[in-house]
Design a protein around this nucleic acid. Structure first.
Length: 649
DNA sequence: CATCTCGGGG
């Protein structure tokens, strides 16, 4: 007993003196030891503060809560420790819950200025304005507003509330300012989009640190000025993971996915810094957009190898990457693996299943989600509606559309209307589609009208089409789809002069079609192809392959589709007979550069056209390989001459 | 008496 007591004292003394970061494993061992002799502890609060701090740093909040709950009389240090643990891990609602608990508990100590830094951070993160204002007055009453940390936290909170004027007044009235005060101002102005003020204060700063620079990089990136962001990034005297993350995220959020991936490689090769979870979230998002499955898989492997925890953000990004790269089964595997899931996790799987045409399973996940008491949001319903669209389930779609507002109080956005109009139009219920548009409480956009126009094209409703084109051109006089539609209608009626005229008008108005573009990842590099592209170094071989395929296809009974009216709004144009659609180039390149039997995965920026769809079906049979094409709206899995979409897309 | 605030994300 004496020996154990001695060991116990030694352990606690060591623990309290310990300044280096403890690993979670060490912590658990120490905690177990301490628990055994808990009644003998000299000062449980001092030990608990230390332990909770370690738990917080390792995001082990359940363990932190456990340690806290074992304290018979938590003092203000212990309360501050638990509040900080939650606040620094973005668990703001929990932070506020503990704070309320502290206020309402008669035995709990009164909060101090340390308490408020965490609580204000939580209010800021939640944008809980009433809470924040209440706590501000609480702080004034308690006389804590003279504390520099509290002042900085308050200024930060008001920026996050979108009140730069209040924040600025607080800053101006501060008798003493430190680097954090200035950084708060710079990042605050960046946050509210006042990049000029941010830059002005940034330039005023005599002393800057990594945070100042990184905040400015993020500010420029978020304002869309990637060149300025990159310039600052290059000018930084030193960089850490956060600086690299800021620039990588900047590229990813501005749709510069290849640049994001490039910089990610540079980070590892040049800086020697390892990526963290935030880095990987951005890179995974780039992979998802590009369909870069190999890199995505490598990141999955990297996460497992490094023992990185699959947190909510990372799990969502990984599941989304798999779903958007055509591996919905892998996406579900990741989803099952996750310890914590939110509405976004569920929505990712639901829209992933929808994209792959698995409507029933998507509905199943929705009901499971409800059983787990996760409240669906607008993104969830977009997934459900697109599941209905891709399966042609009109009435089911209308049911969900009504359910979202009636049952869940979610006001449909223009995107939801677009989805339902698309659903009705494809089914030929053009009257209902048009009525829905006319009854919209918000202004319909080009996408909504375009969906109806698509229906007019399929069902050859020329009168309605004319009307719709007019509405679209009022919104966007350079809407290429409308001109293409008109030209095609005229051509189909034999009015070739009108068709030609339409083309001329299109040219005169400077109408540019979005160039069709497809890409494929081979050996960890994304290769990009435009329509009729001959810029690829292997162009010669690619066109030879296409020629070879063309011969085999002819023998297999394939006839190119020459019906002009078939051309849809989102398709690449086929003005030039000899031009080749981009997905054919990408598929051909995949066939010549990837080993026998591997699945060819291609991503296309527009919708795949009828002709290419037919051609790809036959190619999949001829070469005996699976070809997966992700187009603008969904996945097509081509195999043995068939497509998973059953020709409905 | 030991604790705090500012930068990166699906």
């Amino acid at each position: 007993m004496a020996l154990q007591w001695h060991n116990h004292r030694k352990l606690t003394t060591l623990l309290l003196k310990c300044t280096t970061q403890l690993s979670m494993k060490q912590l658990l061992q120490i905690h177990a030891q301490l628990l055994t002799y808990a009644p003998l502890s000299l000062d449980p609060n001092r030990i608990a503060v230390k332990l909770i701090g370690v738990c917080g740093a390792h995001s082990k909040l359940r363990h932190a809560a456990l340690v806290f709950s074992q304290l018979p009389n938590p003092n203000v240090f212990a309360w501050n420790a638990i509040l900080k643990a939650y606040a620094q891990n973005n668990q703001w609602a929990h932070t506020l819950r503990y704070f309320n608990y502290q206020l309402s508990s008669p035995t709990a100590p009164d909060p101090d200025e340390y308490t408020f830094t965490s609580v204000l951070k939580a209010c800021a993160g939640l944008v809980a304005v009433p809470h924040g204002l209440m706590i501000h007055s609480f702080i004034i009453k308690g006389g804590f507003e003279s504390n520099l940390f509290v002042q900085n936290s308050l200024a930060d909170m008001y920026f996050k509330f979108g009140c730069p004027v209040v924040a600025r007044q607080l800053f101006d009235e501060m008798p003493v300012r430190d680097l954090v005060s200035w950084n708060t101002l710079v990042s605050g102005y960046c946050l509210v989009g006042d990049i000029d003020s941010a830059k002005w204060f940034f330039d005023q700063m005599v002393e800057k640190n990594l945070i100042s620079w990184s905040a400015m990089v993020t500010g420029y990136a978020r304002s869309g000025n990637l060149d300025a962001a990159r310039q600052l990034f290059d000018d930084m005297p030193e960089r850490n993971v956060v600086s690299w993350n800021a620039m990588i995220a900047g590229y990813a959020q501005n749709e510069k996915y290849s640049d994001a991936i490039c910089l990610f490689r540079e980070m590892q090769q040049v800086s020697g810094l390892g990526p963290n979870d935030v880095t990987l979230v951005s890179v995974l998002s780039a992979c998802a957009h590009l369909g870069a499955l190999d890199l995505g898989k490598w990141i999955d492997w990297f996460i497992n190898r490094s023992g990185m925890e699959l947190n909510l953000f990372l799990g969502n990004a990984l599941a989304d990457m798999y779903a958007k790269c055509g591996c919905i089964a892998e996406g579900r595997r990741v989803f099952d693996l996750m310890q914590e899931r939110d509405v976004i996790s569920w929505s990712i799987i639901i829209s992933g299943l929808a994209m792959h045409g698995h409507a029933q399973e998507a509905f199943g996940f929705f009901y499971e989600m409800l059983e787990c008491r996760v409240k669906p949001n607008e993104v969830t319903f977009m997934g459900l509606l697109s599941a209905c669209t891709h399966a042609g389930m009109v009435d089911k779609g209308l049911k969900y559309f009504n359910l979202m507002s009636q049952e869940y109080g979610i006001t449909p956005m223009v995107e939801h209307y677009g989805c339902v109009v698309d659903l009705l139009s494809r089914a030929g219920r053009l009257d209902e589609a048009e009525d829905l548009i006319n009854s919209m409480p918000i202004k319909p956009n080009v996408i909504v009208w375009g969906a109806l126009l698509g229906g007019c094209r399929i069902y050859k409703d020329i009168r309605r089409g004319e009307r719709v084109v007019q509405r679209i051109l009022e919104l966007d006089s350079a809407h290429s789809g409308s001109y293409v539609y008109l030209a095609n209608v005229y051509a189909s009626m034999g009015r070739l002069d009108d068709a030609a005229n339409c083309r001329l008008r299109m040219r005169d108005n400077g109408v540019m079609k979005t160039p069709g573009c497809s890409w494929i990842e081979v050996d960890n590099t994304v290769h990009e192809f435009f329509m009729g592209d001959r810029s690829h170094p292997q162009s010669e071989k690619i066109y030879l392959k296409i020629k070879e395929l063309g011969l085999k296809m002819k023998l297999a009974g394939y006839k190119p589709n020459t019906d002009l009216v078939v051309h849809s709004i989102d398709e690449e144009e086929k003005e030039d007979v000899i031009s080749t659609h981009s997905e054919k180039l990408a598929i051909a390149f995949g066939l010549i550069s990837m080993s026998e039997g591997t699945t060819i995965r291609v991503v296309k920026n527009l919708r795949v056209c009828n002709d290419c769809h037919n051609a790809t079906k036959i190619i999949s049979r001829i070469v005996g390989r699976e070809i997966v094409v992700r187009d603008r709206s969904r996945f097509h899995h081509f195999k043995d001459g068939r497509c998973s979409c059953n020709d409905y897309w």
